[in-house]
């Protein structure tokens, strides 16, 4: 499973901001979208506008599934479980890819831990 980000850069660097992302996400953390992005779902995936950077992130179908599940109501473990259900796979089979996707979302400030 590939969780792909494709970025349509209008201005500035495509690199994430300097804040270091967490290397390890705990399973009981609730993740929610930040206010920094304006996401919308189109046929083929989520497109999200990074307001401060004037950039668009285009998520592929798999990344869109993960992003849409992180609505602030699910923990990391629940997101992994739900992704596994969507793709009819075991949770352990998708765990590494989902964690990588979530870390990327956090790195790009699309998601943040909800306190």
């Amino acid at each position: 499973m590939v969780f792909e980000y494709r970025e349509s850069s209008r201005t500035g660097s495509s690199k994430a901001d300097s804040a270091s992302p967490p290397n390890h996400l705990k399973g009981d953390v609730l993740l929610a979208p930040t206010d920094r992005f304006m996401p919308t779902t189109l046929e083929g995936g989520v497109v999200a506008f990074d307001i401060p950077k004037d950039q668009v992130f285009i998520l592929n179908e798999q990344a869109s599934v993960v992003f849409n599940l992180t609505d602030g109501s699910r923990t990391v473990d629940q997101v992994i479980q739900d992704v596994a259900i969507v793709y009819e796979m075991d949770a352990e089979e998708v765990r590494a890819d989902v964690l990588e996707a979530l870390n990327n979302f956090i790195e790009h400030k699309m998601l943040e831990a909800k306190s």
Binding site: S8, L42, G44, V47, I58
Partner: peptide
């Protein structure tokens, strides 16, 4: 083509 691709 998918609309997300057109957005690109």
């Amino acid at each position: 083509i998918e609309k997300a691709q057109a957005m690109r």
